[in-house]
């Protein structure tokens, strides 16, 4: 299991940071896309970021989500650099805009996974 998923199990967002160039990442990879480095250490994310895009989903992709529509999927750029997919919660869809500042907390998603979500 990746350290990212280990972190999720403890309500922590642990970013793999390249030991060579210091760039923070999210998607697990064997090589740093910036410098090619292969050694990483973990850094706990601040949980602050800004919305780079969003979509209000009105049709459930699977039965798990039937009771949850509509929900807002967002892309959030963390202040450490990486972008992540998430839910934007605790705010009406009309109030969400690209560039909006958001902060992270953990929540149980409809399929049972515990993941970071963001709210204004």
């Amino acid at each position: 299991m990746s350290t990212l998923l280990e972190g999720y199990a403890q309500d922590r967002l642990l970013l793999p940071v390249c030991a060579s160039c210091g760039a923070a990442h999210l998607y697990p990879r064997p090589r740093c896309p910036r410098c090619g480095g292969t050694r990483f250490h973990d850094q706990e994310a601040s949980g602050r970021g800004e919305v780079t895009s969003f979509s209000v989903v009105r049709r459930a992709p699977s039965p798990d989500f039937t009771g949850s529509v509509p929900y807002t999927i967002g892309l959030v750029r963390l202040e450490e650099g990486p972008q992540m997919m998430t839910w934007i919660v605790d705010t009406p869809p009309d109030a969400i805009s690209v560039g909006m500042k958001v902060t992270m907390h953990f929540a149980d998603l409809p399929g049972g996974e515990r993941r970071p979500v963001f709210a204004p």
Partner: peptide, 28 residues
């Protein structure tokens, strides 16, 4: 098309993945 650990748990459809591209294009 959605990353199994980082994206799929949030329930995007394939159209949602493109919608995220579209919404950003509209904002920009």
């Amino acid at each position: 098309w959605a990353h199994p650990d980082l994206e799929a748990p949030y329930g995007p459809m394939v159209p949602t993945l493109y919608a995220l591209f579209a919404q950003r294009h509209m904002a920009e």
